[in-house]
Computed example of a mutant assay.
Amino acid sequence: MAASTETRFSLDGIDRGSLAVAFVVAQALAFSVAYTAGRPTWYAFFMIASTAVTAYLVHGDSFVVAAATMGSILMIALALPLFLFVARQRPSLIVEKALSPDVHRMLYLGVYGPLLAAVISLLFGVPLAHLFAKGFTGQQLVESLVDLPLVVPHSVAGILILFGFGAGGAFPNVSVLGSMIGMVLAMTFVSAPYAVNATREAFESIDDRLEYASRIHGANRWDTFRRVTAPLAVRGMVTGGVLAWARAVSEFGAVAVVAYSVSFFYPPAGGKVTAQHAPVFVYNTYLQGGLAESGAVAFILLGVSALIFLLVRYLTSDSTTSGGIV
């Protein structure tokens, strides 16, 4: 009996990679035509129809065709705004903003601050994630506290930071409002769950027999974690760090409440400067300069973030990491 995933047409002579490239090229051409004609709706219908046809040609299975078609509708909501955003940018304005010292400071702060938040989230989140993976009494309560920032409105998160660490808070001698410390605390609050949960999943995927074998051969808990558990979970840790960094980069509400403008040491200036976190800066640019100027700044920020994300993913891919016992 033939399998249900048997293709309706023979594609044995066609490389799947070439088919994917052809599909992407067709999407690009269709979008270009629709955008030039001023009819982006045409492209939305084309994407849905071409996805359904491609799924039919490759699989010939009604379930796969239906799933691909439904998924393409969601992709329209995700991809079409991005495509139109890129297509409508003015290169001259992007260059102008890219040469602006204010944008340089924004980019530095937008990468440096979230990086500190991600490192803090991993430094203290990895041990907690390991405890979650092993289990302990009262774990559900602690898990609820860790996941709370995922459901708390962003502006409320900023208020919580001010109550917890501002005047009359846990560290009364530490300046939080309008400071780099306050901004990093706000970012850590909203991004820590991503680091903890991703690392926890990595720990839970490790076979307990490997740790047991390490202990049987005389290794203590520290050596077992350093030589067995941590290397096997390193991909999850990096993934958690990247997610925490990305979440911190995109944070607006909490940062706007705690540290709308911050003073920090800026190496090119050789001293302290005042700047705003990237989402806050983009918002201010939108209020003062309109959609075109804010779009140019957003384009630059999007490009820098994408490059960093792709670089980290490449450095942590299967071809560049062992992921095994060391």
Rank of each mutant, 00 (worst) to 15 (best):
308 I>C: 12
43 Y>V: 00
167 A>E: 15
64 V>G: 02
193 P>M: 06
181 I>Y: 08
194 Y>L: 09
208 D>Y: 01
245 W>T: 04
158 G>P: 03
241 G>M: 01
60 G>K: 08
70 M>N: 14
271 G>T: 13
124 F>R: 00
93 L>Q: 13
161 I>K: 06
188 T>N: 05
135 G>W: 10
311 L>C: 13
169 G>Q: 07
126 V>R: 02
231 P>W: 01
55 A>H: 01
24 V>A: 01
297 V>P: 08
40 P>M: 05
114 P>R: 05
136 F>D: 03
290 G>I: 12
317 S>N: 12
46 F>P: 07
192 A>W: 10
179 S>C: 11
247 R>G: 04
110 G>S: 05
94 I>S: 09
248 A>S: 01
311 L>R: 05
235 R>T: 00
21 V>W: 14
25 V>L: 15
65 V>C: 05
263 S>C: 14
59 H>R: 12
154 H>M: 09
22 A>G: 10
286 Y>W: 15
136 F>R: 06
66 A>F: 11
74 L>T: 12
96 E>F: 05
244 A>L: 04
152 V>H: 08
234 V>T: 14
208 D>W: 00
286 Y>L: 15
132 F>A: 00
146 V>R: 04
250 S>F: 08
275 A>Y: 04
82 L>K: 12
153 P>H: 06
63 F>M: 10
44 A>R: 06
50 S>E: 03
137 T>M: 01
237 M>E: 08
250 S>T: 12
296 A>N: 09
252 F>C: 08
319 S>W: 13
8 R>P: 00
34 A>M: 01
8 R>H: 04
252 F>M: 07
134 K>M: 14
15 D>I: 00
171 F>L: 15
128 L>R: 04
79 A>N: 07
271 G>C: 10
280 V>G: 14
150 L>Y: 06
263 S>P: 12
160 L>M: 15
85 F>P: 07
251 E>K: 06
55 A>Q: 00
40 P>I: 02
89 Q>I: 03
185 L>Y: 01
196 V>F: 08
303 G>T: 11
56 Y>A: 15
301 L>S: 08
9 F>V: 06
86 V>L: 15
190 V>T: 08
161 I>D: 01
108 Y>D: 02
247 R>M: 06
212 Y>E: 15
153 P>K: 03
102 D>F: 11
15 D>G: 10
123 L>Q: 06
226 R>I: 05
286 Y>M: 14
318 D>A: 11
270 G>Y: 05
277 H>M: 13
125 G>E: 01
14 I>A: 10
114 P>Y: 04
302 L>G: 15
43 Y>N: 02
302 L>F: 10
25 V>K: 08
